[in-house]
Amino acid sequence: MSSICPFSKSSAAGSCPMKFDNKTGQKTKDGSKNDEHKDSGTISPKCPFGYDSETFKLGPLSCMLCRALLYESSKCVPCFHKFCKVCISRFKDCPLCGADIEKIESDNDLQATVDKFIDGHARIKRFQVSADSKEVGHEQKNVIYGDVSMERGAFLVQQAMMAFNGKNVESAKSRLNICAEDIREQLKTQGNTPELCSQLGAVLGMLGDCCRTTGNSGSAVNYYEESADFLSKLPAKDLELVHTLSVSLNKIGDLRYYDGDLESAKTYYTRALDVRRDAIMERSNVSCQIVDFAVSLAKVADVDRSLGNEDAAIKGFQEAIDRLESLKLNSSDAALKQRRLSVLQFLHNQITDKQSSVPNTSV
């Protein structure tokens, strides 16, 4: 795994050779600032295409449709504007110039450049390297180079989220798979640390979302289960981890429910309920956890109703209602208030309409 910028034949590890003077805008030979009044300095990383942790922007390696880095780079003929294959395949006219698209051709050379860029800028961890003293003019200056990548995995996840929001699911999966691969390599050397387990659990959950979006429920369940496995290894003290774990379990339950496997759905819903019950026993004053707990009660109760356990269903719905109605929220919690009201409305409908059999999948 290379940590060298792909646009450089030789540079400090993790640094991009294209540095610019802040005052003149001129590129310096060694990347140092042209400042005669300082004996040392820290060089802000600058990639020639602007893809660094502070100034990320759309550029020649980006798809203007999904706004992520190009994946399966393709060019329109005859205008030769370039997009991701999946993105441009939805159009008959070029979305940039309006020209009729006669055909779409792969641009393997450009994609190779994108892949090298990702390998050099995303698959490395942020660190700083002290370079040897550099001579600028008549002075010796000690320059510290900064890595142009974002924190570990953040760049890839950022790209995946942009691609996913742009409906390029295959691009999102590709970036997330690279991220997961990198974290697995770290696990081999560092063991199951809380940080790595939480990172991998989150990434696997996102991969599950990608598969679920494309209708591949089998792969989605596998990713969600692996995500839950890693997250279950962590102490249930982090609220975000508790939420992520319970959501993964609920998503498996949803998929099992839609497949008609109600017993399996109830098993996963109950596991999520237990995780959330333990969380509110640990911290009973966290409002969002109480709402999550009520949602889990509703999911289990809904399956009980579908299985013919009406008494258990009514009991579960009523407990959820009691929890939410006793919840006091601050005036600033507008979003949580709306969510509470939405869940309460669903619960009251279940009490009054015993024929309803549609599960709540809002969480």
Rank of each mutant, 00 (worst) to 15 (best):
L307S: 03
I314L: 13
A112F: 15
S287A: 11
V363F: 15
K328S: 07
D52V: 04
V114K: 08
D39M: 05
M206W: 06
Y268T: 01
P6H: 14
V291T: 07
L204E: 05
L70Q: 03
A160H: 01
D109P: 14
I314S: 03
D100Q: 14
G218Y: 13
I104P: 06
K337Y: 14
S74A: 09
E105V: 14
S331P: 05
I351N: 04
H138Y: 11
M206K: 01
L96H: 14
I280G: 00
L255K: 01
A279F: 05
R271E: 13
S106E: 11
V343D: 00
M281K: 13
M150P: 10
G166K: 01
V157S: 03
H138Q: 14
D292C: 10
G191M: 09
E282M: 00
D259Q: 13
H81S: 01
E226L: 10
I351E: 02
D209L: 14
K57R: 08
R90C: 08
Y223P: 01
A99T: 14
D353W: 13
L273M: 09
D311I: 15
L187T: 12
A301H: 04
N285H: 09
P194F: 15
N309D: 05
T244F: 00
S357Q: 15
R90S: 12
A12T: 07
V169H: 13
Q199A: 06
A335Y: 15
R340F: 12
M64A: 02
G137H: 08
F127R: 02
T352A: 09
Y51V: 03
H138E: 12
K27M: 12
L156V: 10
T270M: 10
L196M: 00
S264W: 01
D52T: 08
T352W: 11
I43H: 06
A312R: 06
S32F: 03
V129G: 07
K46P: 06
Y268H: 02
A236P: 10
R276Q: 11
E54S: 11
L196P: 00
C288D: 07
P17C: 13
P6S: 14
K85V: 06
L341N: 08
K75M: 03
D311R: 15
K116N: 05
L234P: 00
G166N: 04
I88K: 01
